[in-house]
């Protein structure tokens, strides 16, 4: 419809004329929403009692606005903080940072030891990842499991929050001790993705525990006894770690439906 509706329609609309058909009422209404000039027409011939009523309502609303409670303060960053970092993660991340700090100190005292930072790097994110996705450590687990966001995306979000803390710390630690940055970060990422991939079968928490125990017994302890770094942490093994990351991440993505439900071992 172009142009303004007939002024007599507007008057009849304002009076609530029952003879005005619905289609006209709608078209007048839609036009009035957008057209200030026609809205002004609407107010010119309003009966006095209606005007008094409107003024009373307006005064009441104004009074409610001034005397009522103030609008709740918006704290945009607090919502973001809650989404990314669940409070339960804080102690575990603090522990991870403390252990890495000790490794750096010990390396300074005993330079003959194989690089402790490199030996710890693969397992550094695992406590955080295990806590981020386990039934026991998330009190609102059952509520979250029934929401559309639940599943691999939420797990990855929380894992990313853990990595955002662990990776800079690892970078700092490897810089301090002169260890290779790539050999600290790639195994760290690889162990994270393998934990998620194995989590498809046994749950993320058990996967993290198993991997940490396996790494400690099969690699870390023997290399501390032999006083030399294992082959997988020597220069040139980066390709192997990249392959592990690609395969495990791909597998986790394919089987992501397994994370949608609350099953007994998650």
């Amino acid at each position: 419809m172009t142009g303004h509706p007939n002024p007599t329609w507007i008057t009849r609309y304002a009076d609530g004329d029952p003879a005005l058909d619905e289609a006209t009422v709608w078209s007048v209404e839609v036009h009035l929403e957008d057209c200030a000039d026609c809205r002004a027409l609407l107010t010119t011939d309003v009966p006095d009692d209606l005007r008094a009523l409107l003024e009373r309502v307006a005064a009441g609303v104004d009074e409610g606005v001034t005397t009522g409670p103030a609008p709740a303060r918006r704290r945009p960053w607090s919502a973001a903080r809650h989404r990314w970092l669940i409070w339960q993660l804080v102690p575990w991340l603090t522990m991870t940072i403390a252990v890495l700090g000790c490794a750096v100190l010990l390396q300074g005292l005993q330079p003959s030891l194989p690089s402790l930072v490199l030996l710890l790097a693969p397992v550094a994110p695992l406590p955080g990842v295990a806590v981020a996705w386990s039934r026991g450590s998330d009190p609102a687990w059952e509520l979250i499991a029934g929401t559309p966001t639940a599943g691999l995306p939420l797990l990855l979000r929380r894992t990313a929050a853990v990595l955002a803390v662990v990776i800079p710390v690892l970078g700092l630690a490897s810089d301090r001790t002169g260890a290779s940055l790539a050999l600290a970060l790639l195994p760290c990422l690889a162990f994270t993705t393998v934990t998620v991939a194995l989590g498809v079968f046994v749950g993320v928490r058990r996967a993290a525990l198993g991997l940490a125990a396996g790494w400690g017994l099969a690699v870390a302890v023997p290399s501390l006894i032999n006083l030399r770094l294992p082959g997988v942490l020597q220069a040139g093994s980066a390709g192997l770690w990249l392959l592990v990351i690609a395969v495990s991440a791909g597998f986790a993505l394919i089987r992501s439906d397994r994370f949608r439900r609350l099953s007994s071992h998650h």
Binding site: S78, A79, A140, L143, T147, L154
Partner: peptide, 27 residues
């Protein structure tokens, strides 16, 4: 909408933050 029997929550959240967080999770 689901209210579980054992209803877990984050103790440090305010009521508003908690309901907001759930609204966000419900997309």
């Amino acid at each position: 909408g689901y209210l579980p029997q054992q209803f877990g929550f984050y103790p440090r959240f305010t009521v508003r933050e908690f309901v907001e967080y759930m609204a966000w999770l419900k997309e």
